[in-house]
Computed example of a mutant assay.
Amino acid sequence: MTYCVGLRLNKGLVFMSDTRTNAGVDNISTFRKMYTWCAPGDRLMTIMAAGNLATTQTVVSMLEEHSKAAEDRQPSIMKVPSMFEVARLIGETVREVIKTASDNGHQSESTFSATFILGGQVAGGAMRMFLIYPEGNFIEATDDNPFFQIGEHKYGKPILVRAYDPDMSFEMATKLLYVSFDSTLKSNLSVGLPLDLQFYELDSLTRGYEKRVVATDPYYSKISDGWSDALRTAFNSLPDFTRD
Rank of each mutant, 00 (worst) to 15 (best):
A23C: 10
K175F: 04
Y220N: 11
S82Y: 05
F181Y: 03
H66Q: 12
D72N: 10
T56Q: 02
T206M: 15
R20H: 11
D72K: 13
K186N: 14
I150H: 09
E71Y: 13
R207G: 10
D182S: 14
Y3A: 11
T21G: 10
R43F: 15
V94Q: 02
T142A: 06
Q57V: 04
Y133E: 10
F241R: 02
S224F: 10
A234R: 15
T233S: 13
F31E: 09
A114R: 05
L177W: 03
A69S: 14
N104G: 13
Y3R: 05
M78K: 03
R73T: 12
N22F: 13
E140T: 02
D167Y: 12
L176M: 03
R128F: 06
E96C: 13
T19G: 01
D165S: 08
Q57M: 11
R128I: 06
G208T: 10
S183P: 09
L44C: 12
Q57H: 10
K33Q: 03
P194H: 00
S102G: 11
T21N: 10
D240A: 11
M168G: 01
N52K: 07
A126M: 00
G105S: 02
V179R: 15
A87N: 05
L195T: 09
N22P: 08
Q74A: 09
L63H: 05
E92A: 15
F112G: 05
V59K: 04
E201F: 09
L131Q: 05
G136V: 13
L238Y: 05
T55W: 11
V97I: 15
